[in-house]
Design a protein around this nucleic acid. Sequence first.
RNA 1: CGGGGCAUAGCGCAGUCUGGUAGCGCGGGAGUUUUGGGUACUCCAGGUCGCAGGUUCGAAUCCUGCUGCCCCGACCA
Length: 440
Amino acid sequence: MRLSRYFLPILKETPKEAEIVSHRLMLRAGMIRQQSAGIYSWLPLGHRVLTRIGQIVREEQNRAGALELLMPTIQSADLWRESGRYDDYGKEMLRIEDRHEREMLYGPTNEEMITEIFRSYVRSYRDLPLNLYHIQWKFRDEVRPRFGVMRGREFLMKDAYSFDVDQEAARHAYNKMFVAYLRTFARLGLKAIPMRADSGPIGGDMSHEFIILAATGESQVFCDKALLEMPIPGEDTDFDADLTPVVKSWTSHYAATEEKHDEAAFAALPEDARVAARGIEVGHIFYFGTKYSEPMGAKVATPDGAERPVHMGSYGVGVSRLAAGLIEASHDEQGIIWPDSVAPFDVGLISLKVGDAKVDAACADLYDKLGKAGRDVLYDDTDGRPGAKFATMDLIGLPWQLIVGPKGLNDGLVELKRRATGERETLTPEAALNKLTGTR
RNA sequence: CGGGGCAUAGCGCAGUCUGGUAGCGCGGGAGUUUUGGGUACUCCAGGUCGCAGGUUCGAAUCCUGCUGCCCCGACCA
């Protein structure tokens, strides 16, 4: 993409409403535009990031055997009356009325709807296990939205729902998502730590929040340092095999949010193993048994011939929140530092002198070859000052900056800068290409 | 939902106390200059001063009501 043809409304100054760093940087980098309290438009740069995060989440859900579908944002109040949640949910639910004066709502979550889908087709335990998910916008009318997309009212979430014949099978479904989440967050370049969460009356030990560590996180968390160095299950993980050992290894170390913190247990750890940090919740998985299947009549025939309500769990990932969470976890004074896996572009190609024949030709060649090698390139072909160009690239945080100017080119050289480390390297265009198109 | 605050040009702000017909910086346009880390200068465009009433010869400024937004707390993916 040529910057001259792109829509990248950079702000030099920080809008005053932005308090936390991710919100400031998202506004300054032209990623989002607030439309109303807690409601945002995703501008092209932000949209790319959102899409890439969603894609990684999707790939890992699929790998774990979950099936993607898409449910609507608008739901009928009747459905929620079946579970009893229509009256329980309170003002956080945005209730609306259609032209026929039917009561509708903008879904804050989809347990009822997925249960309705399940019950109308599935009759036998032979069709289980089943895990259905979608990536869809949700709306929760938070009293006080804040921190940009970190805590908006409208947000993009991946929510998966598992259906199993009994609790034991449901545990396996739970473990699969547990492992999928470890992989997902690792691929996003994040250290995410599963922490025991409140599971309500049914969940038992089957409820975990996945928390990423970031200096500016919203809540205090405590954990064993060992969790930060734990190996991530590989691509070749067999999701049909028993995953209990993996889950056990992750849950056997101390990890707790402030609410569940046990000072004594934490103090029992060796001093250098105690990590007290700030965290951001980016995922939540839990088992809730027959909470919805029972009242909504989602039953299957079991091997012994009886009909029983299915055991369910649900598994959320805050996709739009992750965009902000990633920035909280990875930025510096200059701006965002995207991990390679979610960066809106792989390379920022900077022409230091637009109009100079040699520079133009070298840039065009590099742009072309990088594109053909499958790299997303943002080519700054605008007629601006070098300083401004560098500042913009640093702000939007592309992993690599390839800098082409007349001085270097006279010696047949260009400069390659790694955004994360600030390392610069002067090399030939060919060498730069090799480096950028080698391993991702 | 309790407490506090803000609303003046695209963004950041001054002007409001003490009423007299709106200004600065950044950004945008034209140009000169500069040419490897937000260059300097000149000129230009851009505002129903959040909305509605009221007071007054005259309201961004005083009064009343409303709306939107932000911050702290409680709550939450």
